[in-house]
């Protein structure tokens, strides 16, 4: 328990540091949001409008950095992440709220499937070395070395196109209203198959490989020989003795990968124009939309930290040796 509290304190400190950095970095970038709005509208904004924009973005107050920092925290704690420039006048929290479910839905589900499928195949490959699963390893390693986005481009070139079942972009059929009904859900699933397959193919082999190698390592442990000598069934030795112990590094890897669900597959979302957080971040960077960028970075930071905490807890639960009594 004490160990857990220590970890939580550590992560709180990290979160503070990350949020502080998040505050300073956009302020070091040259230019300001009003400037970028002016250039977007190519001078068609009157001087009065510019002045009111300055007031709106809080650029008129001549606050020093410390006052801005305190204000920033104050707003953050009230859930106010500011206004987005690109989706002006929508607040950043709304923009993130709209796109987060898409990313979590697509990448979250594929990450979980990829982990379970990959780990199961890894157990098989490691336990029966030299079987057909083992023969797949070079192929999967090859696939995993291909970047997501390139695989996505290839998938679009091969499978998407006029008249194809697979749409090449978007998260759902244009014209549908997002809702849980019989029109929207099939459309969303149809749109997610290609990006999901792309992520699955390139991320799964990592799990296979690491699980297989751990299985091979654990298989030569003394307690595996003892388990065989005890006359336990092959299944019991493979799962309860070998896989159970080989799983430990994979589980912490899995918990960490949960943290990268939010920000990790930016490129896939860009390639498929998927309306998720990564695509949003891409647009925000292009438009110098600092509040949106900050908001997304904040979400990514927090999810990575939470994932780390999850990894610690998972390890604590799975490996009794880490529990100090």
């Amino acid at each position: 328990m004490r160990f857990l509290l220590q970890r939580v304190a550590f992560y709180l400190f990290t979160a503070w540091a990350a949020i502080t950095l998040n505050f300073f970095i956009p302020r070091m970038v040259p230019g300001d949001p009003v400037q970028s709005l002016i250039s977007r509208n190519q001078g068609r904004i009157s001087a009065d409008a510019i002045e009111s924009l300055r007031v709106l973005f809080g650029l008129d107050k001549n606050q020093n950095v410390w006052e801005q920092y305190v204000d920033y925290w104050n707003q953050l704690l009230h859930g106010d992440l500011g206004l987005s420039f690109t989706f002006f006048p929508a607040p950043v929290s709304t923009v993130i709220g709209d796109s987060l479910p898409w990313t979590v839905g697509l990448v979250g589900i594929t990450t979980i499937i990829s982990f379970f499928l990959g780990t199961a195949l890894g157990v098989g490959a490691g336990w029966r070395r030299g079987s057909w699963v083992d023969g797949l390893l070079p192929a999967t390693t090859f696939l995993s070395s291909i970047p997501y986005f390139w695989l996505g481009l290839v998938a679009i070139a091969l499978f998407a196109g006029p008249g194809s079942f697979f749409p090449s972009s978007g998260g759902y059929e244009p014209g549908l209203v997002p809702a849980f009904d019989q029109y929207f859900i099939p459309s969303a699933i149809q749109h997610s198959i290609l990006p999901a397959a792309t992520i699955l193919v390139s991320s799964m082999s990592g799990w296979i490989l690491s699980m297989r190698n751990m299985m091979v390592t654990v298989s030569s442990e003394d307690y595996i020989t003892v388990a065989h000598a005890k006359g336990l069934s092959e299944r019991r030795v493979a799962l309860s003795y070998a896989a159970r112990n080989a799983l430990l590094p994979n589980v912490s890897g899995f918990a960490l990968s949960l943290g990268f669900i939010v920000g990790g597959t930016l490129l896939v979302e860009i390639v498929f124009s998927y309306p998720g957080l990564g695509y949003q971040l891409f647009q925000a960077v292009g438009a110098k939309d600092y509040p949106l960028m900050q908001g997304i970075f904040l979400i990514i930071t927090i999810s990575v930290l939470v994932a780390n905490l999850l990894a610690d807890v998972a390890y604590l639960l799975l490996d009794p040796r880490t529990r100090k009594s």
Partner: peptide, 30 residues
């Protein structure tokens, strides 16, 4: 035949027990 008729105590006293299972689990499963 294994263990019921011929059991073995192995060289590695330290590593013969699975570190993630309780003693009870390992005694009971056999």
């Amino acid at each position: 035949f294994r263990w019921a008729d011929t059991s073995i105590v192995f060289q590695g006293a330290m590593n013969s027990l699975n570190p993630v299972h309780r003693i009870s689990t390992q005694l009971l499963d056999v």
